[in-house]
């Protein structure tokens, strides 16, 4: 369920193309033609994902009430990007960062992306959308929607994400980044559940375990293992 894609060292020049197109990794034995084909395929598939929200972009959905998201720009003062980046040129080359105070690699998008896909290289206080438009950190969902259009739609209308405060009046909802760390894979957190359901005092012995396996293949497996048990003894 939880898959972690290992990031691989960058294996080719970036060629000044927009970072969001990603970079098909060159494989040994690939012909130039195959590489070009693959690149075009990824461009096309990305466009297919991106086009609908782009077209619908600024006209907010009909029937949709206004909403506010919990602000995040206030947190920027704790993250003085400029302190370092004013001395560094943007390097569009995906790589493992050494001694970095922030994440050392970008695992988002199957590790095919790099910082500048979402962060505006010219202004560290802002993000940027696919269109190149600068986006405030409070509006980070406008960046996310460029690729995750279906999820964005659910979020916009309340089927995804979380509303906070009141159920009535103006919607106050959490931004995508309140739950998802965009630098990482979307891993589901596995943790220990809160305590077992209680049982009326004195009746603990009355609890009976879950049903035995009943899926077709599980039953077959169990029958086989029982059979082999019998033959072994």
């Amino acid at each position: 369920m939880t898959t972690v894609t290992e990031s691989k060292p960058f294996d080719g020049d970036y060629g000044g193309k927009p970072a969001w197109r990603g970079r098909p990794r060159r494989r040994q034995g690939d012909s130039e033609e195959e590489r070009v084909n693959r690149r075009w395929r990824s461009v096309l598939s990305c466009l297919l994902l991106v086009l609908p929200p782009l077209l619908a972009a600024e006209s907010e959905a009909p029937g949709q009430k206004d909403f506010t998201v919990a602000p995040r720009t206030t947190e920027l003062e704790h993250v003085p990007c400029k302190d370092c980046h004013q001395y560094m040129d943007p390097n569009p080359e995906p790589r493992q960062l050494v001694d970095s105070p922030h994440v050392a690699e970008v695992r988002h998008g199957k590790a095919d992306m790099w910082c500048t896909a979402c962060h505006a290289p010219e202004n560290h206080q802002q993000l940027r959308a696919l269109s190149g438009l600068a986006v405030d950190f409070d509006d980070s969902h406008r960046v996310c929607r460029d690729c995750h259009s279906a999820t964005y739609q659910d979020w916009l209308y309340g089927a995804h994400g979380k509303r906070v405060g009141s159920w009535q009046g103006e919607r106050e909802i959490l931004n995508c980044t309140a739950c998802h760390d965009p630098h990482l894979n979307l891993n589901v957190l596995q943790r220990r559940p809160v305590a077992l359901p209680g049982v009326r005092a004195g009746l603990e012995r009355q609890v009976h375990g879950p049903a035995p396996p009943r899926r077709l293949w599980q039953r077959k497996q169990q029958a086989e293992s029982e059979e082999s048990d019998v033959t072994e003894h």
Partner: peptide, 17 residues
């Protein structure tokens, strides 16, 4: 499988899901 009779009410794994 959405048959509730097959549900485990007292699951107690070290980690869920």
């Amino acid at each position: 499988d959405r048959n509730l009779d097959h549900a485990n009410h007292y699951y107690d794994h070290m980690a869920v899901p």
